[in-house]
Write a protein that binds this DNA or RNA. Structure first.
Lengths: 253, 253
DNA sequence: TAATAATATAAGGCTTGTCTTACTTTGTCA
DNA sequence: TGACAAAGTAAGACAAGCCTTATATTATTA
């Protein structure tokens, strides 16, 4: 019924700002948005009215400002793009955090969805493929730093490093390793999915998202009692219950 | 003296259009630009006047339209970004050509310079690092296509493929291979720089650009008598004289 | 030289995104 | 409670960017 034109970059920025401010302090006032984006209060009202018209925010004059479910979805999508770009720039390309942040801010508004998904997969692949291991990308960064060619020294260690990784992976494939689950992964670190054992609702959801052997899961926060745990996977932030996480067999990175 | 504000996306598109049309048919008319960009003739005149004012194009009413050297430099820079993005999307991420083209068109206007350079280096690294070889990226594409995990089969071949590459590279490092130069590379294919033997003017230029062992050179066109040859390196299109190309030792990919 | 094609110009419209100013509402505290 | 400060809003102005249309000018060529 309501045809929704694509949001302008600026409107996307407003949504992103609202989401981030709410995440941080539990609510937003127009003033906060103005400060966050570096604009005047009047501009915020205009933007909010526009966003309310297309049903992205709940906005009534002098009332509490919240995102609608449509707005929430959109905001998360934008932030996801931002994070994916920033991660790729920093972790894979080895760019300086500031440049990565600025670049992501601009590019998040124009990157096509298909490229986002590919970028995710690729980043995962680099981090999970046994041929790379952890040393490979470091070598690239080293090369960048020194503006160095891929010289004999580096390649020598490349050979050894890679062979070790590959042998390890070979053993893993034979199932000889001790099994650890997602529950064993400490806060803030990443792991690679080895097996999803039980088709419980959350794990089902994961499978539908394309999470499988080789996917990367980053544990973001473990609640006081260890339930639920919050993870980032494929660029999405998710909650997984303890009894479900137990059935996700992983390998720590 | 003349402070030049950053061009808008639209103006960059005009420059790009002019360059591409001139490349293709040796000259431009306002009409061609209008057709190329899908706008009306009036818009073109306005844009040309604006570009002439900032000294990007030579424009006099009813006269021949050309890029100034400033405009040429800028146009090449934009096209370089476009190509780099498109190449990365297609060759590394394995995106569909159409999506890659569209994405590059939008992103070329906002990607920071540092990210462009990193992307170039990374693409080269992937294509040159012996740990990857030619099979690695294919594996990623296969995974994407099947939406498959990195399963045992793939990993098995990964192991073998990688070890073969690494051994080959080891031999290369020992200098046991027969030497081939840039001249031996057929039109349209890529090679990896092994050594730049003589510091002639063109090779010097290459070295200043950061081309060294491990860099990728793509041979684009060989003139009838084999001189000069046109190559693409680090995203730049260059001409190299035959007697200079001879001193660039490479390995075919 | 008259018709036609190409180009140029002027005028104007639309959108986006911002700001300012004047005003309203709300919160606080004496 | 009432007055003052802080926060929020409405309305209008403004500028930039980019396009179109209608009309005028110039070039081309039959």
């Amino acid at each position: 019924m309501v045809k929704t034109a694509k949001l302008s970059s600026s409107m996307e920025d407003y949504l992103e700002a609202i989401f981030n401010i709410v995440s941080e302090k539990g609510g937003v006032r127009a003033k906060d948005i103005a400060k966050y984006l570096g604009v005047k209060a009047g501009s915020v009202t205009t933007a909010l009215k526009a966003l309310a018209k297309s049903n992205y925010v709940n906005y009534q004059p002098y009332e509490v400002i919240t995102l609608t479910s449509k707005g929430l979805t959109e905001a998360k999508e934008i932030i996801r793009k931002h994070e994916i770009l920033e991660d790729f720039f920093v972790e894979i390309l080895g760019a300086k955090p500031k440049v990565a942040e600025e670049g992501a801010c601009k590019m998040e508004h124009v990157i096509p969805d298909e490229i986002v998904e590919r970028l995710i997969s690729f980043t995962e692949f680099v981090q999970a493929c046994p041929r790379c291991g952890s040393g490979w990308i470091k070598q690239f960064h080293k090369k960048c730093k020194n503006n160095a060619p891929i010289d004999s020294d580096i390649c020598q260690s490349c050979v050894e490093d890679s062979i070790i990784n590959l042998k390890k992976e070979k053993n893993n494939m034979l199932g000889s390793n001790t099994n650890i689950s997602l529950l064993d992964i400490p806060n803030g670190s990443k792991c690679i999915v080895k097996k999803i054992k039980k088709k419980a609702s959350a794990t089902k959801r994961l499978i539908e998202m394309g999470v499988s052997r080789g996917s990367i899961i980053e544990v973001e926060r473990v609640a006081p009692l260890g339930d639920p745990i919050e993870v980032k996977v494929k660029g999405y932030h998710l909650s997984i219950r303890k009894d479900e996480a137990q059935h996700i067999e992983v390998e720590q990175q």
